[in-house]
Each structure stands twice: as structure tokens, then as C-alpha cells.
Design a protein around this nucleic acid. Sequence first.
DNA 1: CTAGGGTTAG
Length: 622
Amino acid sequence: MIARTSAHLHAFFKFKGNFISNSHLLPPLKSPLSYSQLGLQCSTHTTRFLASIHSISFSNGDQRPQSKFQKLTSLDDAFNLFDEMTQRRPLPSVVKFTQLLNAVTKMKLFSSSLDLFKQMCVIGVPLDVYSMSIAIRCCCQLYRTNDGFALLGCCFKRAVVPDVFIFSTLLDGLVLEDRILEAERLFKKLIKHNLCEPDVVMYSTMIKGLCKFGSNDIAIALLRLMDERGCKPDIVVYSTIIDSLCKDRMINDAFKILKEMVFDKGILPNVITYNSLIYGLCLLCRWDEVSKMLQEMEDVRISPNFRTYSILVDAFCKEGKVNDAEAVIDIMNERGEVPNIVTYNSLIDGYCLRGEMSKARIVFYSLMSRGLVPNVITYSSLLNGYCKNLKIEEAMDMFHEITRKGLKPNIVTYNTMIQGLFAVGRCGDACKLFDEMQAQGLLPNRITYGIILDGLCNNQQVEEALSLFHLVGDSKLNSNIVVYNILIDGASKCGKLDIARDLFNDLTLKGLQPNVWTYNTMISGLCGEGLLMEAKHLFLKMDDSGCTPDNVTYCVLLQGSLKNQHYDDVETLLQEMDEGSYSLDASTLSLLIDQTAAGSLDRSMVKLIGRLVPKELMDAPS
DNA sequence: CTAGGGTTAG
């Protein structure tokens, strides 16, 4: 089974290792810009689509605004109205058709909207810059930005001059598809060739793209540039940047930008800005400041909305503070913000992560009694809970329940289940499921890869994991510090410290930054082999390279020092911990107590040790 | 009659 497994995995990752898509480069544009110069290929589908578009002259219908377009609530109504309009003679104006198109687009029915657009072309409604921009937006929202560019080509052909709306929409499409290089290129061309003067929306779209790509600095540079060019950044631009900084845990920078917005530009934050900041503070577990933010919102009379509550519920659950999450849900109910399935999913996940499966099930039944329908995420959380508790049969039941309920397990479901099978040592079944997943048309991702490497390492198949790793080679999959952390841990735990060292050196050569985990794993491995000097050396090195040691680092080093009778080091470490507000974990603490009792550790340290005991351990009866 | 920002499973 093992041999079959590995051949299998190898074969897969060898050929599919690079499934993370690369952006396609746009050829440089020449002025004047034309569709073909944008270099985007039409699909056959698009070609047919274009072929169906004809320009025929039209008669003007009446021009008064009609509210019936906004009143449309169902697609059927829209189609009926469309049919009725096409029967009228003279044909209603393009404005009427565009209003209808817009109504359907507002319902997010982009495909239907495009169908209507095609029919408009067929019956000869002339296209103007408005109708074109809506059609292009539909393409872009459907992740068919290339088709959007094809329509841009139509604009050129029929002398519709594309405006800043159309270009912003296309830019947004490229950003949506992660084609950031092309987005940048398009943006620069537009400015360079004076095709349109970017407005605040276009800047904000480009800034969103830069943030998404992880270049907050460049995004901020663009913020400065727009200001210089006389385009005033507004709350959306600022909030985009603030949100990105918050997501990247750069909360201080986020507050700096916020201050600039408020004090230099006189723009007050709104509920969206607050939500971003609250999210960022939650990520960093800075609960005091979260509550300050909520207080501030109340002071300036901005009510928290559904998303605010959702962020809080989710954050509390992730922190294990499920009771606090429950309290937030109560508040939501009181204030008429009805919790939805996502809210309850967070709660279920919170209980599952704490292993409180019966409570998770209670929430599960209560959400159903409220008429909410569990989705694949609900089941995946429960599945994950059972897996983490090593209740593999229950997990399997849950897995099958998903299909029984007519839902489809997704990549997360499979990843979770595969991880669960590895956790109980059922490697063969894990691999079978890996096959099944692909048979279902799901592509393994970097998480799958990590789970498999980790699963192999923890089931005495480190060699297998390493050969899989080498086979994947220089692919993007291996440019991930997590992969190294798993392998370094696996290698050192089975006594292959040389390999662990090699991996550690290799990652730096690749330009990867070791993180706290990497250092902790290496230090732990070195301590395990009694190589205290080398471990201490690495400890100093990590601090030098800007990686702050955490509790784990100190506890690992303490345990190493204790087990190797380096009592001087124990004292130094304890003092450093005291100065840096670190705390002891349960196992290190009990080791310290044992050694003090046995007389090998000086009693003068007891007081110091006492200060390092975290509150949780004090309360726990042991 | 057309374009931009916030939460959500591993």
C-alpha cells in the first residue's frame, strides 16, 4: 500500500505541481489603443458572440425615466418586459434597454444580462457607451475579462469611444482574476497615451489590485500620486488601504493612514472602515482595543452592522471564546440583525476546535430549528471536529452525510478528511480519498500538499515525504515555509538531524524567511540531540534576524537545558522570560517543579517560576 | 442608463 501510495502521489505532484496559475503578460500597447493591440485573444465563444452583434439604426422612443425597471425583482419579469419591448414599434430607445439590462445586472444575474445584451444586438438596438459598459461589467464579473476586452474591441469598431467607466470595469476584471501585471500595464497605458484621465474610482480599483497583490507600499505610493495629480482620495480609497493593512496585521500602519484620512483630509471613518479595523485588532487578539473601537462607534453614532457582529463572532470563536461569541449572537438577535448560516458556522467551528462536539451538535440542531439550512461548511466544521478528536467513524459519517444531503464535498472537506485519516494512521485510506477527490474534479492545493507531507512524516514515512518534496522540486508549491517546517520537524523527530539542517540551509538559499515555527522546530531538534550550544546559537540568530522568540521557543530551550543539566542557562532563560512577559506551558512547568523537588534546581528560582505561571494554569485544578 | 472598499470552513 505504501509503495502504491507514493508512486501515486509522486505521479500527481510531478505533473500537477505547478497548478498555481501565472499571470499572462500583455504585450506593450501602442497608441492609439485598439482591441487587437491589447493582445487579448477571443475565444471561439466570443467570436460567435461578436458575430451576433450588428449595428442597425434605430428610432427614438420616449425618453421619460421609467421606474418599472427598478421594480423588477425576478428574471421572468425582466425577460417578459424585454420581449414586450422588442415587439414595440418603433423600438424603444437604447436607454430603455440599458435600464432593463442594468436591473438584471443589479440582481447579479450576469449571464442572463449578457443574453439580453446579445438579443439587443441581434434585433439591432444600437449600442452606446452605457450599454457596452454594462455588458463589459457582466463579462468581468463572470471572470471572463478577455471577453470584456473583446467587447472593447467592438467599441473601437463601431466608434463608441470607451470612457473611464469602461476602463475601470476592465481594470477591475483583471484584478478580480489576479492578473495584476496586466492591470498595472493597462493602467499605465491609459495614462501614458491619454486614453482617459483616471478618476477616483479608477485609482481605487488599481489600489485595490495592488493591495491584493500584497504591495501595500506601492498602493500607498499610488495614493500619494493621485493626490499630487489632483484627484482627491475618498473614503473608499482610504478604506481599501486600511483594510489591506489590517489583513496583513499591520495595524499601526492602518491607524497611521486612518489618522491621515481624518485629520489631513477631514474624512470620517464609516462602518466599513471600523469593521476593517476591528477585524485587524481581532486578528492580533487586541480585545481591549476592539472594545474601545466599538465604544468609539457608539460615541460617533455609527451602529455596528451585520458584518461587524459576524467579525466578532468569528474572532471570538477562533480564539476559543465561544461564550463571548454566543453573547454577540444574542445581541444580534436583540438588535434585529438575524444571524445567518455563516454566523452559526463560526460558532459550530468554535466548539469543534475546542473539541466540544456535543455543544457543536446542539448549535447544529438549533440552527435547523430556526429554519436555516446547514451547508457544506457546516458539515466540514463538524467533520473537522471529529477528526481533531480522532473520532474517525463519526467523521466518516459526517462526510457521507454531505452527499446524502445533496451537497458536494469541496477541497476543504477532502483536505480535512484526508488529514483525519492520516491522524489515525490510515494512510492507505487517506490516499484512496486523495484519488477520489481528483476523480471528482477537485485539484489538490498547497494545503493538500502540506497535509500529505505531514501525514507521511507522522506515519514513519519521512523518506517518502522527502522524495515527494524533491520530486516537486522548484515548483511554487515548495516555495512555502510551511513545507519546510513540516519536513524539518519530520526529519528531526526521526533522528535525521543532518537532513533537517540541510533543509534549513536550503530554505534560506531559496530566499525564504524562516519563521518562529521553523526556528522552534530546529531548536527543538537540536536540544533533543543534546546539541545545546548549537541550539543557543540558533536562538541568538533568530533574534538577530528579526524573528522574535515566542513562548514555545523559551519552553523548548528550557526543557533542553533542564534535560541536559545546563542549570545556568535555565536561570538566564527564566529571567529573560520574566523581563519579556513570557509564560511557561504546563509540561515545562511540571518539569521545573520536578527538578526543584529533586533538588537539582536551586530553590531560589521558585519565586521567579511562580511569576511565569499563566493564569489559566493557576485556575486549573491539577 | 454605466465603474470602486468590509466578515465567512483546512
